[in-house]
């Protein structure tokens, strides 16, 4: 009996005591074995329970567009296939823009954008990961917020601060922002022959509608 109590003791220290005391020794040790052998199972279980604490929202409808005014012609492209995720409790946000999904009005421009400027074969995605500051999930209506984090374009990562708005109506969440990206910052080079055709900076407009995950 003394031995059995000692064994229970080991379990009690690692697990929630109340349950273990009632349990049979072999069950307790068996579970320990499972935990040692399959740490991923435990990892997943815990990860799931933690994520339930903060409600996550995923992008339902997305529009990422950019516009630039240049001497010869204005350039505009829109991408409606951007997946994104937002944790309203922690403010953590991430999205990943597939470069090839940008649609231009001119097919040749789209080709050049992929081939020569963003090099989408090498850098297929632009990403943002960071935190939204100043969001209150209790307040209704439009709130002004600020997102800080890492913006990666063309393989170059920069710390950025982007102002925007969030509208929250319980079920759905709309996020809007407009900001300027300087091509030079992200090592997007414009060939000499093309410089008149392309502006040095573009205005990016983001419009996401999120739904609960």
């Amino acid at each position: 009996m003394g031995l059995a109590v000692m064994r229970r003791g080991i379990c009690q220290r690692t697990f929630t005591p109340g349950i273990i005391v009632l349990a049979d020794d072999s069950w307790c040790i068996g579970l320990l074995n499972v935990m040692i052998k399959f740490p991923t199972v435990i990892f997943l279980l815990t990860a799931l329970s933690i994520s339930a604490l903060g409600q996550k929202y995923v992008v339902e409808k997305s529009s990422v567009s950019f516009y630039s005014e240049a001497a010869i012609e204005d350039i505009y492209a829109e991408n409606t296939r951007t997946p994104g995720i937002f944790n309203e409790a922690s403010g953590d946000i991430a999205f990943s823009i597939p470069i090839k999904a940008f649609q231009f009005k001119k097919s040749l421009m789209q080709e050049h954008f992929n081939e020569k400027y963003l090099e989408s074969d090498k850098y297929p995605k632009s990403t943002f990961q960071g935190k939204v500051n100043g969001f209150l999930n209790t307040a209704a209506g439009i709130q002004s917020v600020k997102a800080t984090g890492k913006l990666t374009i063309h393989g170059v990562t920069k710390e950025v601060e982007i102002p925007g708005t969030i509208e929250f109506d319980g079920g759905k969440l709309t996020m809007k922002t407009k900001f300027i990206v300087k091509l030079e910052d992200y090592n997007v080079k414009i060939p000499q022959l093309m410089w008149k055709n392309i502006a040095e900076q573009v205005e990016v407009t983001v419009d996401f509608t999120f739904k609960p995950q």
Binding site: S90, F95, Q129, G149
Partner: peptide
């Protein structure tokens, strides 16, 4: 780990 890195890898 559930912070930012995970969010991006989920995507």
């Amino acid at each position: 780990a559930t912070a930012q890195d995970d969010l991006l890898s989920e995507l």
